[in-house]
Amino acid sequence: MPTRPLHLSVALALLVGGPASAQPAPAPMLSAALQDQTLSGSARLRYWGFDVYDARLYVAPGFDIQRFEDQRFGLELSYLRGFKGADIAERSIEEMKGLARLDPAQAQRWQAAMSALFPEVRRGDRLTGVHVPGSGARFYVNGQWLGEIADDAFSRLFFGIWLSPRTSQPRLREALIQSLGGPPRAP
């Protein structure tokens, strides 16, 4: 899959209205971006009887799910079927709107940024996002640098799709955070 030039992150930062990040340059390989992180949990998303993707959450020791927005972590989606990047972006915005009220202009900018960044995925492709608090979301495809959306508000809400207590997929969230402890689930 072709990689996008590094300057795409600057263009996306301007598109979403945020300043270019003062954070260190992103790691070109996912393994470097997640070097201190371990697998917390995994789950398969099924929608209307179709297998969509397998999700894996990578966190550092001491990760607190109640404050996920304040900590660095990675979320990998291994696709089980093909999707257009624009369709992934559209569905992401729909899910984000289920978590918080979005200004229509902001939603449009975020959707455009994701559509410009997310590639068409095929079965077996892995799209991984890394939340960098205070900076935004960095993305990798099949372990290689893809680009970033340098907007902390976007990143918090985007990853809330999977990690917020208000997620539309509470069982998937539970499976992702299973190793973090917390109260046992009622039968």
Results as ranks from 00 to 15, higher is better:
6 L>D: 15
105 A>T: 15
14 L>M: 14
121 V>F: 02
99 L>S: 10
8 L>N: 09
17 G>P: 13
54 D>Q: 15
36 D>Y: 03
110 W>L: 09
99 L>A: 12
38 T>K: 10
94 E>L: 11
43 A>F: 02
16 V>W: 06
19 P>A: 15
8 L>S: 13
20 A>W: 11
21 S>G: 14
18 G>P: 08
92 S>Y: 08
6 L>A: 15
76 E>L: 07
78 S>P: 02
89 A>G: 07
114 M>A: 07
66 Q>K: 14
62 G>K: 04
130 V>D: 01
42 S>G: 09
11 A>H: 13
123 R>F: 00
37 Q>S: 11
36 D>T: 13
44 R>V: 10
70 D>F: 07
114 M>G: 07
72 R>D: 03
55 A>P: 00
98 G>P: 07
30 L>C: 05
69 E>I: 04
35 Q>I: 07
41 G>I: 02
56 R>V: 00
108 Q>S: 15
103 D>T: 08
125 D>C: 05
32 A>Q: 13
92 S>C: 05
63 F>Q: 03
9 S>T: 14
89 A>C: 07
117 L>G: 08
30 L>K: 06
22 A>C: 08
78 S>C: 10
36 D>C: 02
58 Y>L: 11
46 R>D: 03
113 A>K: 09
55 A>K: 00
49 G>C: 02
105 A>R: 11
96 M>D: 10
113 A>S: 10
97 K>R: 15
96 M>I: 09
91 R>I: 03
94 E>V: 12
74 G>C: 01
122 R>I: 03
86 A>R: 15
128 T>P: 03
36 D>S: 10
98 G>M: 06
101 R>W: 14
110 W>G: 11
104 P>V: 05
26 P>Y: 04
76 E>T: 13
110 W>F: 10
67 R>M: 03
40 S>P: 05
64 D>P: 05
105 A>P: 03
86 A>L: 06
121 V>G: 06
43 A>Y: 04
20 A>H: 14
117 L>N: 08
24 P>K: 07
10 V>M: 10
115 S>M: 04
63 F>A: 04
55 A>L: 00
56 R>H: 13
39 L>T: 08
28 P>W: 06
77 L>R: 05
49 G>V: 00
68 F>E: 01
80 L>D: 08
75 L>F: 06
22 A>I: 07
117 L>I: 02
21 S>Y: 05
112 A>Y: 06
46 R>I: 01
124 G>K: 00
96 M>R: 09
130 V>G: 04
64 D>V: 04
67 R>E: 08
50 F>V: 01
124 G>A: 00
80 L>M: 09
68 F>T: 00
